[in-house]
Nucleic acid binder design. Sequence first.
DNA 1: CGAATTAATTCATCCGATCTATATGCCGTA
DNA 2: TACGGCATATAGATCGGATGAATTAATTCG
Lengths: 253, 253
Amino acid sequence: MRVTDEAIDRIKQMIVTGELRPGDRLPREPDLAARLGLSRSSLREAVKALALIRVLEVRQGDGTFVTSLDPALLMETMGFVLDLHQDASVLEFFEVRRILEPAAAARAALRMPDADIAMLRKLLDELGPEPSVEDLLASDVEFHRLLAVGSGNRALASIIDSLRQPTYRARIWRGLTQNDAVAQTLAEHRAILDAIEGREPEVARSWATVHIAGVERWIQDAVNLDGVEPPPTRRKASAKSPRVLSRSTPVEY
Amino acid sequence: MRVTDEAIDRIKQMIVTGELRPGDRLPREPDLAARLGLSRSSLREAVKALALIRVLEVRQGDGTFVTSLDPALLMETMGFVLDLHQDASVLEFFEVRRILEPAAAARAALRMPDADIAMLRKLLDELGPEPSVEDLLASDVEFHRLLAVGSGNRALASIIDSLRQPTYRARIWRGLTQNDAVAQTLAEHRAILDAIEGREPEVARSWATVHIAGVERWIQDAVNLDGVEPPPTRRKASAKSPRVLSRSTPVEY
DNA sequence: CGAATTAATTCATCCGATCTATATGCCGTA
DNA sequence: TACGGCATATAGATCGGATGAATTAATTCG
């Protein structure tokens, strides 16, 4: 086994065994390298790899730390990976969303605290009857995020959140071309929330299914029409993103 | 932005834009370093990070290559991450499985080719009526994997597969303590397969739900009993695992 | 007391030498 | 010609030290 791979494993084990806890600081590079019996260069490769998947966080001039290991944080890696599958398999990921989001909505109807429901209601109310496409998308993303969190299952919420990433471009495209989609989205959001508020899981599930399926169907049709391609939305990632994974910043949604 | 992070991004972009395709070989370390304008050491950190998440594969003495980028391969990263959440949130991941696997079973009932169904049948038949715990677990893993693949959705299959990883230890524990679990598992597997063969998606979904819920309930009970802890199953990963992520080898399931 | 400067700590980057694994072509043998 | 083993080229693996940059803390000065 390569020394670097072994270092990755050793550090991982230090976390699993509890020797290193979330937020803990790792020994200095030279010290840890000595302890693991390898050179700084090799250790740095291991640390960089673990930083990419958000297990470690390096702060220049300060030190290297174990992250919170929050599922949501760890799942960000999935978004990075999903970026590699932009064109072809978007529909496959969409189908997974169509499975997970209704389930999350149903669970939210059972478990979501009243206070969080109120927050969700406020989010919808703050959006005017005819919002801009940008505002709608921002609200949409936040709505689904809170809905997923409301399921009370962090792992479920994280996966849903990650799956949303690779499809948001398609949704932007939809917002730009289909004007009645705005009103429809708003109405469906309210229907889902009403069901949750009324503690009716099956109604929430159904509305969520309708909501996701609507977008999915539209994308499906668009894909089937030959020559129809989403407009290029490529951005220079290097300049904007301070994160290692260089993900899209929230403001872009 | 750190030069290494920029290198990660540049390589990612080279893949996204199609300049590098799956299976392609990257330029030699010195050449690529020169092209990206950084040192070999820094480039190596970037390559190591991308190798950890299975985007690149390095073969000493041969070269560095883009992997197949198969969703299943990419999702392996999730398993690595999930290993960090062994104790507390296993049940959360289990709940996601309880959502996804029945959905996959239902879809398999609609889409799975007859030939694949026959293969699944053969898998179950080859297992004797009273198999060893090891054989049962191996068969179980393969059964669920084929079932997920049978859904016809690679993304769904990959996620299910990844989620299975962090729970297999719990299942091993179950197999060792509950003897009737063997017969029950076999019967449930057959029931699921019968439903798929009969092209009855809702029946398949229900049996899959029962199957997963059974294990989940058992784990739930075990967790609730104070002082009951799974036996240590720690292994020396360094010696056994040739993969970068040092995951469990199939034979251990 | 507060602000600015300085110093110490820590990671970031680079360099180039040496080691190791792999692939491939050459060569001898059958 | 066919096969097997050896030599060599290639490419990644590892190392250790020098230098730069960012952050934090201590110190000094107004």
